[in-house]
């Protein structure tokens, strides 16, 4: 069966393109495989400089100027790359205390981050402090479950964005953690927290059905998993309670994973969940390969982690 589909591929591929009314860029029938690279960070916490040589745990690791070199090399290899951050950009070194997050946003903009979600520590100078730094950010802020309509952040944050790379639609939406009890009310003011599972269910439906996305990514600051309280909403809970999400990029719990987790959604399909620790020590890299429709094998998508 596999052999058969493989042989049919070249002719049928062209037929499909003409019939299906694919987007302009997809009309290049010679392109058999497309590769989308997703790069990600989380909980960088103002770690602009690398750790010093005397640091007990992370000596000489991290540093924005080194991450920039790596990101550029990956982009040169594959221009169809998105760079995303899962929140807690702020707080952790005096760079934040002194400059309020200005340098963090400037460097992320220069590195061409495409989008970030908002972590609890991004409210550490209050919602006004976050708002004040927005002119330094040229990337998008995505959060679907924080309702900012009664705050200064109104209209500055979108629930999701659809990026188009090589004719493929990549839908990215953001989710934030419950702020009450974690952040002072004076800091987050009238920011309303909405149920992440309900919102994620809506988002994935909109991105799949209305926006017709080829790839759906959730940028989450919910935390990977709470072992003492496993029912508390987390990335693993989110993965199994929803459908149509391909990748959850997490943060908050500063979880170092030996490799990305392959979880199952509520339809039994695979969802990749990843988080890369904290402080800019690691960069996550997920490559998605797309083939023309009838090149698809009976096994579906293979995952190599």
């Amino acid at each position: 069966m596999k052999r058969k589909t493989f042989i049919q591929q070249s002719t049928a591929g062209i037929a499909l393109v003409t019939l299906g009314g694919f987007g302009f860029q997809s009309c290049n029938a010679n392109v058999k495989t497309k590769k989308i690279t997703i790069l990600h960070t989380n909980d960088v916490h103002s770690h602009i400089d690398a750790f010093g040589p005397d640091d007990a745990r992370n000596a000489n690791q991290g540093g924005v100027a080194r991450r920039a070199t790596l990101v550029e090399a990956i982009r040169n290899e594959n221009p169809n790359t998105l760079l995303l951050d899962a929140g807690d950009i702020f707080q952790g070194t005096p760079y934040f205390n002194y400059y309020g997050g200005e340098l963090e946003f400037k460097l992320m903009s220069k590195m061409k981050y495409d989008a970030a979600t908002i972590g609890n520590h991004d409210f550490d100078n209050g919602i006004d402090g976050l708002y004040a730094q927005l002119p330094h950010a040229s990337f998008k802020f995505l959060s679907a479950n924080y309702d900012f309509k009664n705050t200064v952040m109104d209209t500055q944050v979108k629930p999701y964005h659809v990026f188009i790379k090589e004719g493929l639609k990549i839908g990215v939406f953001g989710l934030g953690i419950k702020l009450e009890g974690l952040v002072g009310k004076k800091m987050y003011k009238e920011t309303d927290y909405l149920d992440p599972i309900e919102i994620a269910t809506d988002m994935s439906r909109i991105l799949k059905e209305d926006e017709q996305c080829d790839l759906i990514i959730c940028l989450s600051h919910l935390g990977y998993h709470y072992s003492k309280n496993p029912d508390r909403v987390s990335d693993l809970v989110l993965a199994k309670s929803t459908k149509n999400i391909d990748l959850i990029i997490g943060g908050h719990t500063h979880t170092f994973l030996p490799k990305p987790t392959v979880a199952q959604n509520n339809e039994g399909k695979n969802v990749l969940v990843n988080q890369v620790g904290c402080y800019g020590i690691n960069l996550g890299k997920i490559d998605f390969y797309f083939d023309s429709e009838n090149n698809k094998t009976a096994d579906g998508t293979s995952i190599i982690v």
Partner: peptide
Amino acid sequence: MVLSKIEGKQIGIKDSLKIDQDFDSIIA
């Protein structure tokens, strides 16, 4: 198009990576 393969990993930001001078001069 359909998703056929996913490859995921993480890359350590080690001191073997060159410091990007453009970035460093903004930070300095």
